[in-house]
């Protein structure tokens, strides 16, 4: 009976999570024809060749840069919003609903909203005369087409869309901090900023660690924003060619090469796993898990 009730979950997880990972590991050392069939072994050093290739190294660098922009900004804005709205004021519920609302926008919806903001000819920002006079790059070649600004512009869209998620989690974390701690701190004469540093932040530790890992993982999985905003471009700099887009993108150099796609997908998994472990071990040890 136990097995019968477990079977549906087990079948799905094995067929669509574990088998594909194992199969991808094997596929990653193979060379296939254009249809992705008739694969023959190309030797395990295909992984090393892939990893060392300039395309992969470039995508890895872009992805790290993307994470280095989106993760800290996402954390700071999320915590800032949550602290700002964590007060008993009339109408605070409305502000909370607004701040969490971006959780309802899918990646396609939020990317297209930002596309309209950022596009050079038909976009909203470029038709704000004073703003595009101040920053001519908005109008020509456009924030998404300038190799210097494209990645940051995409990152802004991404930070915006994950704001709701971070806000909800940090708000829940703040509400879990017992009021007595603040009272004790106040009696000891701690002012607002010291209370934040010595009570709020340490008590938020586990929440922040979780958010940190999720945001990092998301940054490394970013696909929709790139696909809709830049297609990995602007060319020839490939300024926004992230690992996921290199693997799946329609404009990717390895599109249609199942062996190399599998190899980059497996390498993405390894990089992500390593990062999560690093974060858990490096920061996790210093996080305070209270009894509450």
């Amino acid at each position: 009976m136990a097995i019968a009730m477990l079977a549906p979950s087990l079948v799905i997880l094995v067929v669509f999570v574990l088998y594909p990972l194992g199969k991808a590991v094997v596929l990653g050392q193979q060379r296939c024809n254009v249809q992705g069939r008739d694969c023959v072994s190309n030797g395990w050093d295909q992984y090393i060749d892939t990893f060392l290739s300039s395309e992969f190294q470039h995508a890895l660098g872009v992805t790290f840069k993307f994470a280095l922009i989106t993760v800290p900004l996402g954390l700071v804005f999320g915590v800032g919003l949550a602290v700002l709205a964590d007060k008993h004021l009339r109408g605070i519920g409305i502000f909370r609903a607004i701040f969490s609302s971006t959780v309802a926008t899918s990646v396609a919806v939020s990317s297209l909203m930002w596309l309209f903001l950022l596009q050079p000819e038909v976009g909203a920002l470029s038709n704000l005369g004073w703003l595009s006079d101040m920053f001519p790059v908005i109008k020509s070649p456009g924030l998404l087409r300038d190799p210097g600004t494209a990645l940051t512009a995409v990152a802004m869209s991404s930070v915006w869309s994950s704001l709701g998620f971070t806000f909800i989690l940090v708000t829940a974390g703040l509400q879990g901090i017992p009021a007595e701690l603040y009272e004790a701190a106040a009696i000891d004469g701690a002012t607002g900023s010291r209370r934040f540093r010595h009570v709020t932040l340490p008590m938020l530790g586990p929440t922040l660690l979780f958010v940190l890992i999720v945001l990092t993982t998301r940054a490394f999985q970013t696909y929709g924003e790139i696909d809709l905003l830049t297609s990995g471009g602007p060319k020839p700099h490939d300024s926004t060619m992230t690992l996921t887009y290199l693997t799946y993108g329609q404009d990717s150099i390895i599109r249609g090469n199942a062996g190399l796609q599998a190899a980059t997908a497996v390498l993405l998994f390894v990089v992500l796993l390593g990062l999560s472990l690093l974060q858990l071990r490096g920061i996790g040890k210093r996080v305070h898990y209270g009894n509450t």
Partner: peptide, 13 residues
């Protein structure tokens, strides 16, 4: 296992 690591093979399946 991140979703993105499985989709190459899942598409074939």
């Amino acid at each position: 296992v991140p979703l993105e690591a499985t989709l190459v093979v899942n598409r074939r399946t």
